[in-house]
Design a binder for these strands. Structure first.
Length: 414
RNA sequence: GGAGACGUGGGUGAGUUGGCUGAAACCACACCCCUGCUAAGGGUGCGUGUCCUAACGGGCACCGAGGGUUCGAAUCCCUCCGUCUCCGCCA
């Protein structure tokens, strides 16, 4: 969540920043008004409560002293009704405020290039030259069919469209990639965690998926549980409502999980193949960082993900997202896009974001800064999306006869 | 899933005839003093959130969560969640 006090004090600046992310200044104006109303409602309530408390104390005293309490009782009863009313007002004011506040995205960093959509993203650098083929490279689904690697039909039969089954060497390669990613991340200092694949609503709100993006999530019927759309949710919320000693920062975590997404808004996009599935594997990095040092951690995470692609011999480019393409929680995001020769284009394979204190405020993740508790910065990034890496290997390592080489670094995992 | 016990601040743990307890004591931690050598003694501070204040300081809320009874609840009642023990079931 954005900082309401900041909006209150620096309204114009806040409005300018959020406009870059497509938020109407009127929405922000409304938010400011609601915040003021809540504070007003609360102080009226608290004044009445203070009065009630002191009268109650008197009440006890009178009784002990054997004084008459008739008059006091009448006053206290009347005030009690007033409190109930004021409480209701405050509750409504709070609900109204949070309905708006929780749906407002994070401020983009000032350094983020302005732009409307992915067309305006800025390529920072390319790593590794795409291989030159002396034949027409196939797309991954054609290769999958030739090698019997992906069973799309049976995936659909078992579940529904946008599910698939990996078979044989493809399944083994998937597992090899997970192990390779986890081992690499661990060597970089990330603690490996194995977390629940379902999280409750409070956690989903902490990282920003709820309440605004409920339609993208699979909910467990009759339970306060959702299938996680990314390991960012459980990893970041490991420290939900906790206060960390400063000496423990940064906390670096990595974990493999499947990710479940309804892909509600992407009907018709990437329907062929397994670029966009309802369930996919991903190894995630999450960092809980000191606010003064989150930029360094961010760079490290980008470099790590890029290094993994390089180790796999996969050409890719590093792209800074423009303001219009930033996700809801992100202040800054760098995507890694891997070269897919079959598709003849770069496709997202990792997305690394610094959310600054946006998630920390929602999830109440703080650290002890001397005597004060301050919000941490949280960062997350894929290292890497497993299924898309598999696709990239298929397309980049294909031979003319349709067979696929295994990258050198993975051989010990197969 | 069934039966019973329990859920207090970083930890241990008082408080359950409702008010003087947001919470004793001890430990841990921080700072200061003393002392000076691998030990100890003394003092002070030490939950979270939020609001008011330039500050000092003060208000409100929180004793698993949410409701209820009451002028007043950590203390009584209800629901839920969790932990432990026994049983059942199982990877």
């Amino acid at each position: 969540m954005i900082d309401l006090k900041y909006i209150e004090k620096n309204f114009d600046e806040a409005a300018a920043k959020l406009k870059k992310k497509g938020v109407d200044p009127q929405t922000l104006e409304k938010l400011k008004t609601l915040f003021g109303q809540l504070k007003e409602a609360n102080s009226a309530l608290e004044a009445a409560q203070a009065e009630q408390n002191s009268m109650s104390k008197l009440f006890g005293q009178y009784k002990r002293e054997g004084k008459d309490i008739g008059e006091l009782k009448a006053k206290v009863d009347a005030n009690k009704e007033r409190i109930a009313q004021l409480q209701e007002n405050a509750r409504k004011a709070e609900a109204a405020l949070y309905e708006v506040a929780l749906a407002i995205p994070n401020f983009p960093d000032d350094s983020v290039p302005e732009g409307k959509d992915e067309e305006d993203n800025v390529e920072l650098r390319k790593v590794l030259e795409p291989r030159v083929f002396d034949f027409e490279p196939l797309e991954h689904w054609a290769l999958a069919e030739k090698n019997g690697w992906i069973d799309f039909e049976r995936g659909v039969k078992l579940a529904k469209s946008r599910f698939s089954v990996l078979r044989g060497d493809a399944a083994r390669l998937e597992r090899a990639l997970i192990n390779f990613f986890l081992d690499t991340n661990r060597e970089k200092g990330f603690e490996e965690l194995c977390v629940p694949f379902m999280n409750n609503a409070q956690m989903l709100q902490g990282t920003g998926q709820l309440p605004k993006f409920e339609d993208d999530l699979f909910k467990i019927e009759g339970e306060d549980l959702y299938l996680i759309p990314t390991a960012e949710v459980p990893l970041t919320n490991m420290y939900n409502d906790e206060i960390l000693p400063e000496s423990e920062l940064p906390v670096l975590m990595t974990g493999y999980t499947p990710c479940f997404r309804k892909e509600a808004g992407s009907a018709g996009r990437d329907t062929r193949g397994m670029i966009r599935q309802h369930q996919f594997d991903k190894v995630e990095m999450v960092a809980i960082a000191h606010p003064d040092r989150s930029d360094d951690v961010f760079e490290m995470m980008v470099q790590n993900a890029s290094d993994i692609l390089t180790a796999l011999g996969l050409p890719h480019r590093v792209v800074e997202l423009c303001t219009g393409d930033l996700g809801f929680s992100a202040a800054r995001t760098i995507d890694l896009e891997v070269w897919l020769p079959g598709q003849n284009k770069y496709r997202e394979i990792s997305s690394i974001s610094n959310t600054r204190d946006f998630q920390a405020r929602r999830a109440k993740i703080r650290f002890k800064d001397g005597k004060k508790n301050k919000l941490v910065h949280t960062l997350n990034g894929s290292a890497l999306a497993v299924g898309r890496t598999l696709i990239a290997i298929m397309e980049n390592y294909q031979n003319e006869d349709g067979s696929i080489e295994i990258p050198e670094v993975l051989k010990k995992y197969m």
